[in-house]
Design a protein around this nucleic acid. Structure first.
Lengths: 338, 338
DNA sequence: TTGTAGGCGTTATCAG
DNA sequence: CTGATAACGCCTACAA
């Protein structure tokens, strides 16, 4: 069934039917109702392909995501979908994995599907070698590119980030102010936001008048067990630390397990702070103090920026929102440790 | 740029270009190469809308999901996307929430987008009142409907499920065999798979020669804190139990927190079994014994069933896979409790 | 093996 | 306010 069937049954031309479908004002109320009735009666829905062909858009946004099973990224995808749908956009989800070749391939795929924009979820998409980002810049020549938690300065690329640098800076400072002498920094990625966090840590230590001990920067895998193992290893080798600032809740939970293994009391002998304020932070024991990076707000911001781009407004290349530290059992800032 | 530009530059007709694009054999190797070169040179990509219009498909599968931020569902979506992409299908993700009206609305939306099939993730889509499922049956008249972890007997609806009944039956039986006298059943939903699990529990108790004590069936919310609270409440009211079989890891973790609050030793005084073998099961302390329901296998099964449907094969309406119980610290089946 | 021409279902322009 | 008609870009008989 198509627009012709409707027009015929309603006794009008297809042009009129089309006008009704698209809410064009130039239709008399009477004809409009007549057409609407017929459409209802026939259960008619416009063919999206034909419409896409004419308008060269199907109101679809591509979402590129490393791994939508990661709880943090899954949350981001969820909120993006919810908000985009409010504006009538569908999302095509596309998970790439870490491999640069796949990222390029899938971005290309989305472009070939004629999506109206692409949203990159997570700073993993920004390679450290600048020329490896060329594919993003090129894509931006065609459609708007939105980056969640990553930053790339380029026309038609819009970035929504939480202030990872500041969050880690503040959290580390609080640990130091509470009397902690040796704060270990636990991380697992050198992505854009990974580096922001690391710098926040380094600057906080320096601002506190201490020098950064490179041996306190521990690079782990994004895996609980392996994190526990690597901490055990450096601990057994004699590394001293009385607090851990982790770049991810999962790592922090690994740290809690390490503390239990070694019989270290939390928070007395070891304070721990995680990042993302995920479900994990309340599942563990003691519950985890964690940075809440407001992924919902971030997603809403990203979507509304995109809508403004579509409307032809001037949109800032970079929007930053701040985070909160949610205090739980792995820290006790009411006490002073010496 | 379109197919005409390519044909012109290659000195052939658009039909030939089309044949090359679609891998039609009836093109001489020489012309084929010539056309491929031009396409490469121009960076030409066929317009998917025009193609969709002609073929009436864009090789897209709609995924309907209650809440893709739920870790279990997020996993399912992830594996579905991975596998569908292998067959060249894109996915449109659509989260509905619990409201039946929204489920219907979004299914309708996906149908209007002319997706090739719809996959329902999670048994929450099956309403207890049979006529409330009418919208699914109707949709199945147009395209194949795949249900993950739910069952509805109807032509063109294909269900992939894990054997929730058997898993809970077996797990409960192990608790009883280890000497547990009063196993509390903790659940949060009466969805299709929720009822399967509940029946598994009931039948296991009965098969063990005991009668089901209705007060041991505790309905909670899908929330750690609230689960802890409700368990505390029934415990304070005098309910006796020495084991908990939970329908979801999140509930089981709430149970662990309850045990800590009341000073009950795990597993000596209280054994706990969770469901889904999620990240939570290793984050808590002690780690959680949990049913692994093989969501990856389930997703692969669902996708390959769908592909066989597309190929016109006869596909069973229902495929069931079995689960494993992963033993961790909240149970100790080496001991016998009296 | 190649080319021509009609059709897919809309939207949009322009004339009335 | 309404209608006729030309795009939109591709696929696919059918003809050569």
């Amino acid at each position: 069934m198509n627009i012709y069937d409707v027009s015929q049954k309603a006794g009008v031309s297809i042009a009129t039917v089309s006008r009704v479908i698209n809410g064009n004002q130039n239709v008399s109320e009477k004809t409009k109702q007549k057409v609407l009735n017929v459409m209802q009666e026939l259960g008619y829905t416009p063919n999206v392909f034909a419409r896409g062909l004419g308008l060269n858009t199907m109101k679809t946004i591509g979402i590129l995501c490393l791994d939508s099973s990661d709880p943090f990224l899954a949350n981001a995808v969820f909120y993006l979908e919810q908000n985009l749908r409010k504006y009538g956009y569908d999302i095509i989800l596309c998970c790439t994995g870490y491999d640069l070749v796949n990222k390029q391939k899938y971005l290309q795929l989305l472009l070939s599907k004629r999506v109206d924009a692409v949203i990159l979820v997570g700073s993993y998409f920004l390679e450290t070698v600048r020329k490896d980002n060329a594919y993003l810049l090129e894509a931006a020549n065609n459609i708007p590119i939105i980056i969640l938690n990553g930053y790339l300065s380029h026309p038609n690329i819009y970035c929504s980030l939480c202030d990872d640098y500041q969050s880690v800076f503040d959290a580390t400072t609080r640990l130091l102010e509470s009397g902690r002498k040796r704060v270990l920094y636990l991380y697992h990625t050198k992505s854009y936001s990974g580096m922001q966090k690391l710098n926040g840590y380094k600057d906080a230590v320096a601002a506190f008048g201490m020098s950064v001990d490179e041996s306190l920067l521990v690079l782990a895998k994004n895996n609980m067990q392996q994190t526990q193992d690597i901490l055990s290893k450096v601990y057994d080798e004699g590394l001293q630390f009385d607090a851990i600032m982790a770049a991810e809740d999962l790592l922090a939970v690994g740290a809690i397990k390490f503390a239990r293994e070694k019989g270290l009391r939390i928070p007395e002998e070891l304070s721990i702070i995680g990042y993302n304020n995920s479900l994990l932070s309340t599942a563990c024991e003691p519950e985890l103090t964690s940075v809440d990076n407001h992924i919902e707000t971030l997603s809403i911001t990203a979507v509304s920026s995109l809508m403004r781009v579509f409307e032809g407004h001037d949109v800032p290349n970079k929007t930053t929102i701040s985070n909160d530290l949610i205090l739980r059992g792995t820290t006790d800032f009411t006490k002073q440790y010496y």
